[in-house]
């Protein structure tokens, strides 16, 4: 985690800064932000879901997105790996850069983008295949590793997801036979299989019980050593517990973005304060 505020040295041209509390952007390139959102707007047909978002997501840190239902949290998350592409009638303006590479430039290779940006969904959705096949599914696609090294990779991913000890004797059983919390960790392991740079999590605990939730949160804490994590959550305690930075969305706008501790203790905006104190949303 690197939460120190540094002076802004490079500000991309279309970027709209949000005041002094925005975390400083580091120089572009490999030292720049992991995800750079540049004046990004998104429309479902005539309805605008995201309005001129501009902010940076720190590498190897957990960034939480909070906000009331329908504020565009999930839309934003699914814009990073372009999973919204399937919906007819969508369009967007501005751009998002993942590790310096444009997501929306014409000719973007969706396959490689989605390999670099993993995703974990709200409900555990393992494939109706074996535990092993679930994790091997991503890396097998473009032969990221040779067939011989696949078992090692699967083991490493399952270990990272904190699931190895529970499933090492059941690798041939269907992934759907695991418990809900285990299934979600299997889905995390599956996303790790691609060795992504960024891991998106869309309310990963909302379908889980408190104990399984705690395990996932501990896991998120471990994973940020290796991955940049963006997590959407409805649960403000969860955002406070797991994240280093928090962005508060309301009606498609980014109201406030700051270090988690500061956003929760000294919010700069009234609406943020109203939301985190439970007065609306």
């Amino acid at each position: 985690m690197n939460a120190t505020l540094r002076p802004q040295t490079v500000v991309p041209a279309p970027k709209v800064t949000l005041g002094p509390r925005q975390p400083a952007a580091r120089p572009a390139g490999k030292d720049g932000p992991a995800v750079d959102v540049r004046d990004f707007s998104f429309f479902y047909g005539p309805r605008q879901a995201l309005r001129n978002l501009s902010f940076s997501i720190e590498r190897k840190a957990v960034t939480a997105i909070i906000g009331p239902s329908g504020c565009g949290k999930s839309t934003f998350l699914r814009s990073i790996n372009r999973l919204n592409d399937l919906i007819p009638g969508i369009r967007q303006q501005g751009d998002i850069l993942v590790e310096g590479t444009s997501v929306y430039r014409p000719g973007t290779d969706l396959v490689s983008l989605r390999q670099r940006v993993g995703m974990v969904f709200q409900r555990p959705n393992p494939f109706p295949k074996t535990v092993f096949e679930n994790v091997a599914y991503g890396p097998a696609l473009n032969a990221l590793v040779s067939r011989r090294d696949l078992p090692d990779l699967v083991e490493r991913c399952l270990r990272q997801a904190g699931l190895w000890d529970e499933v090492k004797d059941r690798l041939d059983e269907p992934g759907t036979s695991l418990s809900g919390g285990q299934q979600q960790r299997l889905c995390i392991a599956r996303a790790l299989g691609n060795q992504p740079e960024v891991l998106l999590m869309d309310e990963p605990c909302s379908a889980l019980d408190p104990i399984a939730t705690q395990r996932i949160e501990e896991l998120i804490f471990d994973l940020k050593q290796h991955y940049t994590i963006v997590i959407v959550t409805h649960n403000m305690q969860q955002a406070a517990r797991v994240s280093d930075f928090t962005g508060f969305f309301d009606q498609g706008q980014l109201i406030e973005f700051d270090q988690t501790e500061r956003l929760f203790t000294k919010p700069a905006h009234e609406r943020t304060e109203a939301y985190i104190t439970g007065r609306f949303g």
Binding site: V111, S112, L113, R114, Q115, F121, N125, K129, C187, R190
Partner: peptide, 26 residues
């Protein structure tokens, strides 16, 4: 379920391979 389709797409599977290896197999 659509979530299964999305899972494969999010792993980088092109649409036709998603159809073939996840949807059809299921």
């Amino acid at each position: 379920p659509n979530s299964l389709r999305e899972a494969a797409l999010a792993l980088g599977y092109p649409r036709w391979r998603t159809s073939l290896s996840v949807v059809i197999r299921t």
